[in-house]
Amino acid sequence: MGQANNKGYLEQTETIKTMIQTCIQCGTCTASCPNIEFMDITPRHMWRLLLMDHVDALFLSKSFIMCSSCYYCTLRCPRGLELTNAMSLLKQTASKLKLKQFQRSSLFYKAFLDSVKKHGRVKEIEFMTHFFISMKNPMIPFGFAPLGLKLMLKGKVRPEFPSGGSGKLTALFKKVAELEE
């Protein structure tokens, strides 16, 4: 079977595989997914790839990061599988493995969370600045310029916010870090 070039993903995905092992490929998850049109492979396809140990193919696609955790699939899975949690684990694995194709999203999330951790809420300007710096590509900000301007004009993004939330979420972040251990 085609397990040849799985680049050591297998160890990481073994837990996820056991979560979905009893899948009977009925397709309920796929039919329920509200983000399906943004995915190049369907959730059912993802579970099948996992089951067949075609993890390389799974990580070549970015479909799982489209999961918005609506829990529709989990709610209706006849096998009672925790599919949304499996999706989250896939996201975490992709981030942990520092795969190139997920670098952008990982860094975006990281910059977002760093900002939240620091101020107790997101400070858009700072968050985007950190993201741009971490991407190490001077062209990226230009791509976001039209959207940024639009948001600013509508008052959705303001240069400064009153501070005071800093440190309030520390305990929460600590707990999450513990759980992720």
Binding site: C26, G27, T28, A31, S32, T42, R44, Y72, R76
Partner: peptide, 29 residues
């Protein structure tokens, strides 16, 4: 060969018909 997630009223037709969304084996909705 498909399992239906849930049913909705067909809001476009508004004649009480029901809309079933499913995925075929090839992954088409």
């Amino acid at each position: 060969r498909a399992r239906i997630h849930s049913l909705d009223e067909d809001l476009k037709k508004k004649d009480g018909s029901l809309l079933a969304r499913y995925v075929d084996l090839q992954g088409n909705i």
